[in-house]
Design a protein around this nucleic acid. Structure first.
Lengths: 188, 188
DNA sequence: GCGGTTTGTAAGCAACTGCTTACAACGCTA
DNA sequence: TAGCGTTGTAAGCAGTTGCTTACAAACCGC
C-alpha cells in the first residue's frame, strides 16, 4: 500500500497514484480530520501543491480514496459469498489488506461530499446482501447485516476491544454467519 | 439538552453545566474534531476562557461528556432488559433523547484520553451482556452483540441509510432480538 | 536547438485552532 | 464599607490548516 521512495522523474500518473496510496493509508490510520495534506504529500514523496493540482481539494481526494477501495471487493465477489468474504477480510489482520473500511469508520464525523460516497457504498453492499433472502423486508434485513459488519469493524479495529479484537476469525465467522442465517432465513 | 438563554449572573455550577450540555450537543452533531471550543462556549452563552478554567482542555471536556452520558443507561437498566432497552433507545428518534452514542460514533478518529473512556464504556456494556448467556465464549458473543448495537447506530444515525434509518423500531427489535437470541442461546 | 506545454518546487497567505493572560465586575465576609 | 476571592471578559499568541501563486526544470514536437 505504501510506495517505495524511489525517485520518479516527471511521471504525473505515478505521482498521482502515490498520493492516492499515501492518502488511503493515512486516512485509514487517523481519519479525515486528523490527516493533513502536508503529511500525505510527504508520505507520497511529492509536493503538496501537486495534490491540489491532481485532485482539486482534500475532500475530493478523500472521496476518490473511498470510492476506489470500496468497490473492489464488491465487484470481485459472488453475492452468496459476499457476507463471508467481507467478514473474513475484515477479521484477518493481513498487513497488506485493504484498509478502506478503516478510513470509512474513522471519518464518520466528516460530512460533505464523502457522505454521499459512504451512503452509495452502503447501498451497493446492501443491495447484494438483500438477494440472500426472499423475505418481504429483505432490504431491512440486509441493512442489519451491513450494520453488523460495520459494527464488528468498529469494535475490532477502532476500539480494539477484547476479546473480539484478537478473536479467531473462524470462531467469529461461525457465530456471526450462524445468527445471520437465522435472520435471513426466517420469513417471520 | 440545550439550555435556555436566560441570563445567569455569576453561577459557576450553572455555567459549567451549560458548557457540558452544549459540548454534548455539538460533539454528537459534528464529532470531536469539527467542534470548536468557540462554538461550544457560544452555544452555552459563556466565555471560552471559562471552558478551560472548568475542564482544563477540550480533550478532558470530551471525556467528561462521554463518561456522563454513557453510564446513565447502564446503571438504570436490569441486565436482561439492557439489550432491548439500549436497542430501543437508539431506535426511537425522540428529540430529547440522549445523543451520547452519536458523539461516540462521530469521534472514532479521535484517540487520546477519550479512547480509554470509549473502551471502558464498551467493557461495561459487554460485561452486562455477557451475563445473558452461559456459553463458554460468552465474552466474545457479548462483543458481537455490542458491535451490532453500535453498527445499527452507525448506519441509522450517521450514514442515514434507508430503509433502516426510518424503519419501525418494533420491526427492527423483533429481527435483531430474534437473531441475537440464537447467538446467545446456542452453546455450539 | 527552440517554443510551448507539462511536471515539480518554494514560499506564503489568510483563516482558524486550542489555549493563555491580564484585567474588570461581582458578591460574600468581616 | 473595605478587602478579597470568585466569576466573567477581551484580546492575543503561537502553531496549524487548506489552498494559491510565482517560478524553475524537464519533456516533446518541430
Amino acid at each position: 500500500m505504501t510506495e517505495e521512495p524511489q525517485v520518479r522523474k516527471r511521471d504525473a500518473a505515478a505521482t498521482r497514484a502515490a498520493l492516492l496510496d499515501a492518502a488511503a493509508a493515512l486516512f485509514a490510520e487517523r481519519g479525515f480530520d486528523r490527516t493533513t495534506v502536508r503529511d500525505i504529500a510527504k508520505l507520497a514523496g511529492a509536493n503538496q501543491a501537486l495534490l491540489f493540482r491532481y485532485f482539486g481539494s482534500k475532500d475530493a481526494l478523500f472521496e476518490e480514496v473511498l470510492a476506489r477501495g470500496g468497490r473492489e471487493q464488491i465487484a470481485t465477489t459472488p453475492p452468496d459469498e459476499l457476507l463471508g468474504t467481507a467478514l473474513r477480510s475484515m477479521l484477518e489482520s493481513d498487513t497488506g489488506r485493504d484498509r478502506t473500511l478503516d478510513a470509512y469508520l474513522r471519518s464518520t464525523g466528516h460530512d460533505s461530499a464523502a457522505a454521499a460516497v459512504r451512503r452509495q457504498l452502503g447501498e451497493e453492499y446492501a443491495k447484494v446482501l438483500a438477494t440472500l433472502t426472499d423475505a418481504e423486508d429483505a432490504d431491512l434485513r440486509a441493512d442489519l447485516i451491513l450494520a453488523w459488519l460495520l459494527g464488528i469493524g468498529l469494535v475490532r479495529d477502532i476500539t480494539g476491544k477484547e476479546p473480539l479484537a484478537s478473536a479467531d476469525p473462524d470462531d467469529v465467522c461461525r457465530l456471526v454467519l450462524g445468527a445471520a442465517r437465522t435472520l435471513l432465513e426466517r420469513s417471520g
